[in-house]
């Protein structure tokens, strides 16, 4: 199945929930709106694509902290949640992207929300917890949205570009 075919199928099924695509990239990707994510994932898993294997979930924080460079960049600051999917049976791979604002309602500290794909792939449990822990995205509908790698009382989201290491943590010097 080629990329165009897949996009046609998806657009037919989900309409404007498929918000964008890039088939020329090294790994072609499809952009999905947050509210249609779970349905699209279910469709991709159970449909002809049989993308039954969730490799990874990660977030890229598009924010340029360097002021000189920030003038040159072409994008607005935002978060990209990237889902890497593959299929055991058809050897197909796919990248899904969801664009999110860096902060919900532009309130710094109020982390954005996205529906959890835990009902689709169980492995999303830990991956989403990791994303929540390191990049600060809350997955609604996740049964156990806690930090996983950092301590539970850790402050901040280390993989955010504007993250600053705390000066001290429980008496341990941070930086």
């Amino acid at each position: 199945m080629s990329g165009e075919q897949l996009i046609d199928i998806l657009k037919k099924a989900f309409g404007d929930k498929i918000t964008g695509q890039n088939l020329e990239a090294i790994d072609p990707w499809i952009e999905v709106s947050p509210d249609g994510l779970v349905e699209v994932c279910k469709f991709l898993r159970d449909g002809d694509t049989k993308l039954n294997f969730l490799n990874s979930i990660c977030v890229v924080d598009y924010l340029e902290t360097d002021e000189k460079k920030a003038k040159k960049v072409t994008w607005e600051p935002h978060l990209e949640v990237v889902y890497h999917l593959s299929s055991i049976s058809s050897k197909l791979t796919l990248v899904l992207k969801v664009m999110l604002p860096r902060w919900k309602d532009d309130e710094p500290g109020n982390i954005p929300e996205i529906p959890s794909v835990f009902p689709v792939w169980s492995t999303a449990d830990w991956h989403e917890r990791e994303v929540y822990d390191l990049s600060g995205v809350r997955f609604t509908g996740h049964p156990n949205m806690r930090r996983i790698l950092c301590p539970e009382d850790w402050v901040g989201y280390p993989l955010r570009k504007d993250y600053e290491m705390p000066l001290e943590y429980h008496g341990v010097r941070g930086r």
Partner: peptide, 13 residues
Amino acid sequence: RVRARSSCFSNLS
């Protein structure tokens, strides 16, 4: 951005 998808991470889950 650099990301490492760990096999043991999923295996342990």
